[in-house]
Structure formats: C-alpha cells, structure tokens
Computed example of a mutant assay.
Amino acid sequence: MRRVSLADVAKAAGVAKATASRALSSRQQDVGEATRARILEVAADLGYQPNRAAQSLRTGRLRLLAAAVPGDASGWEPILAGAAAQARRRGYHLVLHYLDPARDGDQPVDGLSVDGLLLISPGRTLPPVIGEDGVPLPTAVVDDNLEHGDGALLRTALWQAGRAAGRHLADQGRTRLAVLAESSGPVVDGFLAACSAARLPVPEVHIAAPAEAAVEPVVTEVLVDGFFATSPALAAHSVVGFRRGGLTVPEDVSLVAFGDGELARHFDPPLTVVRPPWAALGARAVDLLVDAVEDAAAVPAGLELVAELVVRGSSVPERRRSFVPD
C-alpha cells in the first residue's frame, strides 16, 4: 500500500503543500485556526505519518534526545517512562545513556549526536554539554535533591509534599506527631508548617539512616499517634518497630511516607504516601527540550510539580481517597 504523502493531504484539504506543511509542523505559523483544524482532520483520516528522515534533512535536527541516568542507582525508571512516552508523542526518539559515577567531571554524552539532553537524578551538577555545532545542548535536569543545575531543573514541590502529609494526619485527629528523615530539608519543613497551621504541638524530628537497626530505637522511644517518614524504607522499618513496641498501624499510629514504589504498595499494611509526580516530571522535561530545539525557546531555570497524596492502609481511611495539595 502506498504511503500517504504530504501532497495527498494538501490535495484532499484543498490547500497548497506549503500550507499543509506549516499546519502539521510543531510551530504552525501563518495558518488560520479553521484551516489548520481542517488539515489536521484530513491528515488523521488519511493516516498520514510525517517522514522523519526528510524532516531531519530539512531542519538539521535529528529528532533524538539523550536521557542520562545514574549507573549506580535506581528509582529513576518512572521518570524515564514518562519522558519516553512524551518523546514518542512529540515525534522524537529517546536514547539511554548511563552516567559513570567514577567519571565525576566528564561530560555525560561525549560522542553522542543528539538534539537535547535529559539528566535524570544525576545527584550532582554537571558541566554544560557542547553540541557538534559548538553550541551548548538544550538541557533539562530532573532531580529532587539539587537546588540548581545546568539548564532547566525540574523537581517535586517538596515543601508542599511535606505539608500534605501533615495535613492528612491532622485531618485524622492525630495530635502527637513525629518525623523520621534521613536529613532535614523542605519536606520536613512543610510537614512542620502543616502542624503549626493545625495548632498541634511541635513534632519531634528524628534523623536516621534507612536501616532497621537505626530506626527501631527511634520509634520505640516516641509516644505518638501520627508519624511521617521521608521514604518508604524508613516507613516500613518504623511499622516493624511500632509492632515490637506493642503498637499497631493504623489503629494506634497513622503513618504516611514520602515516595512510592513496590515496597509501599505491597507492604502490610500498604503505605499511605505522598507520591512525587515522576512520570509528569519526565514528560514536562521532554516538552521543555523539544520546545527549545524546535522554537529556539529559552529553557526556564526551574519548575516544580505538585505531589499527590495516595491514601492506603497505613493511615486511618477517609472518605476522600486522594487529592492533589495546592
């Protein structure tokens, strides 16, 4: 069967080939709304698919993005999945590149010819990557643990995430709260702010490594009815510690964790979490890169997306099962 061409679309829509090309491009310049809608409808009816090779030759773009991920860590997979899906929707391919932790100062995509670079959880600020034309590649960084990066930095709105956890526990009528974290930061600050707004006593903040031996002494000494852990691993160890102390979750202690994953979903009880918008972060990063590549748009300095409270069995059930905090 013959491939539907741009000329076929133009003829069926009753427009010039150049008009059809502009209407079907990402920039859609100088084409009226009604004309563009008609061309898009005709293209969909005919099953038109753009010739990516021809587009690349014409525009000088490869329609290829690199996603660089840490080679010594995991947890980046949902971000990559969101990025890959959005890249397909935007007509781009995404290639995976592993960052070697032993090469701290090296550029992460040496030798790759790409239009843009997505750094996922690099854990450090990396030097700008220079493209083949001598111009820095458009770059987006997704990392909750960085304050700034080269290019756009996309991250979870951490303070709001902590506040969502505190508000949820306060809504359950819990009044003696505590926090367990690997370190202080905006997630903890947001939780404390929520408790203050609810006129609750200032929660105790405990710092511990995500290991059972480090967590159990903490949870066996606190007298609480509400508990917030900044990772599912800390939360799981906390539940075990509470049980050994004769307390049950959620009957005696309501518990919320920041993060999500297999552990949180399949633990007993399943953990109520404030879930970072991982897939949305990856998709938004791709949009920023594609816009920068195709329209020479300036990549914004930073962007935060809001996390979602997902209520499961570790906190007292409530009528509204989930919400997106403002």
Rank of each mutant, 00 (worst) to 15 (best):
M1E: 08
R3K: 15
A7Y: 06
K11T: 10
A16C: 10
K17W: 01
A18S: 15
A18E: 07
S25N: 06
S25T: 04
R27I: 14
Q29W: 05
G32W: 02
E33N: 02
L46A: 06
Y48T: 02
Y48L: 05
P50H: 04
N51G: 03
R61C: 02
R63S: 08
A66P: 01
A68Q: 03
V69Y: 11
P70H: 07
G71M: 10
G71V: 10
A73V: 01
W76E: 00
E77P: 00
E77R: 13
I79H: 03
L80C: 02
L80V: 15
G82C: 07
G82V: 07
A84T: 12
A85N: 04
Q86I: 00
R88M: 11
G91A: 09
L94Q: 05
V95I: 15
L96A: 06
L96I: 12
Y98L: 15
P101K: 13
P101M: 11
R103E: 10
R103I: 06
R103V: 09
D104T: 12
Q107G: 12
D110F: 11
L112M: 14
G116Y: 02
G116N: 05
I120C: 06
G123A: 09
R124E: 04
T125K: 08
P128L: 10
D133H: 13
P138A: 13
V142A: 03
V142K: 00
D144G: 05
E147L: 13
H148S: 14
A152S: 15
L153F: 11
L153I: 07
A164G: 10
A164P: 07
A170V: 13
Q172P: 00
G173M: 13
L180N: 02
S183G: 11
F191T: 07
L192C: 14
A193D: 13
C195S: 14
V205N: 04
I207N: 01
A208C: 08
A214G: 01
V215E: 00
E216S: 09
P217K: 10
V218Y: 04
V222Q: 09
L223D: 11
L223Q: 12
V224T: 04
G226E: 05
F228S: 02
A233L: 11
A233W: 01
A235F: 08
R243D: 00
R244I: 03
R244F: 03
D252Q: 12
S254V: 02
L255A: 06
V256K: 05
G259W: 00
L263M: 15
H266N: 12
D268P: 00
D268L: 14
V274K: 05
P276G: 09
A279S: 14
A280R: 15
G282T: 06
A285T: 04
L289K: 08
A297F: 04
A301I: 05
L305F: 03
V310P: 03
R312S: 06
E318Y: 00
E318P: 01
R320S: 07
V324G: 00
V324A: 08
P325Q: 10
